[in-house]
């Protein structure tokens, strides 16, 4: 547990007045407040730091304790006693949906965990955010899954075709509302990992299939893998390397459109033979003479 220099965090001197601290805090809060920095984890961390610094420095008693024992907090037994007894209310500070875990261990050690904080959930419950990692194959079909969010099990339906990075909202599954207020919402961000041989672009899938020289020249059948099984394709004679064919409806499911699928694009990669025998060389030479 490292010592935290709250003065440095707020960018003020140790002799700063209450007014200067307030001013510095407001300035930084306007810069890093999560409302003004959506989906910015760095700003969120920074905001928590300045909130904590303000919690200490804007409160005369906290500041006094911090100034007196800050660097020796490990040895100050009185902190522990203070922690047990602490019941004073704290200064109002900016809210934004935080919980007890948002203060550092250093702060907890010195000032304890009990606090009266301003909550963003004055009426409406707090929103929860969660991340879920799934394999691409798991989002090929709609399925139900039980998630544990804030120690509560929630069974949700994951619709087929969800995109990497997509966020879905589960209304009412956030924190409980206060005074008959509505519950908050649960936001789940999906991280889709693609370990398949298919590349995905929205609903379309792309893959490469090797063709031998003779099949590319003379045509024939080839069996290819799609996402949900194998299909037999007819290869046209004189197929060129890099030729792309489209298998309609063999791509990825379209999000929230049951029964609709994107397309599968197959690119042929023609493999020329190697380690030719003498006979083969002779025959290719003959062929070359014909061109």
């Amino acid at each position: 547990m490292a010592y935290i220099d709250y003065y440095k965090i707020l960018g003020v001197s140790k002799s700063a007045t209450e007014q200067e601290i307030k001013k510095a805090y407001r300035k930084l809060a306007r810069k890093y407040h999560p409302d003004l920095n959506p989906n910015d984890k760095e700003a969120e961390i920074k905001f928590k730091e300045i909130n904590e610094a303000n919690e200490v420095l804007s409160h005369p008693e906290n500041r006094k304790k911090y100034d007196e024992h800050g660097k020796d907090w490990k040895h100050a037994e009185e902190f522990e006693r203070t922690r047990q007894q602490q019941q004073e209310s704290r200064h109002q500070q900016y809210s934004g949906g935080f919980d007890d875990s948002d203060f550092s261990d250093f702060f907890e050690s010195m000032f304890g965990g009990a606090r009266q904080r301003t909550s963003s959930a004055m009426f409406r419950g707090q929103d929860y955010n969660a991340e879920l990692q799934l394999d691409l194959s798991e989002v090929y079909t709609s399925h139900k899954r039980t998630l544990t969010v804030n120690n509560k099990n929630i069974r949700i339906k994951i619709p087929a075709g969800i995109e990497n990075g997509q966020v879905i909202k589960i209304p009412g599954y956030g924190g409980k509302g206060v005074n008959k207020g509505p519950n908050g919402d649960l936001y789940i961000k999906f991280n889709i990992v693609n370990n398949t041989n298919f590349k995905r672009n929205h609903d379309n899938l792309y893959t490469t299939v090797d063709l031998d020289l003779y099949k590319s020249l003379l045509g024939g059948d080839v069996t290819v893998n799609t996402f949900d099984g194998k299909v037999k394709l007819k290869v046209k004679p004189e197929t060129q390397n890099g030729t792309q064919v489209k298998l309609k409806g063999k791509g990825f499911p379209v999000y929230k459109k049951d029964g609709q699928f994107g397309d599968l694009y197959i690119t042929y990669n023609i493999k020329t033979p190697t380690n030719l025998t003498t006979k083969e060389k002779e025959l290719f030479t003959e062929l070359a003479k014909l061109r």
Partner: peptide
């Protein structure tokens, strides 16, 4: 939710 945010902008910031 949106109004709460606007309240924070005005009264806290």
């Amino acid at each position: 939710k949106e109004i709460e945010k606007l309240i924070r902008f005005h009264y806290e910031m």
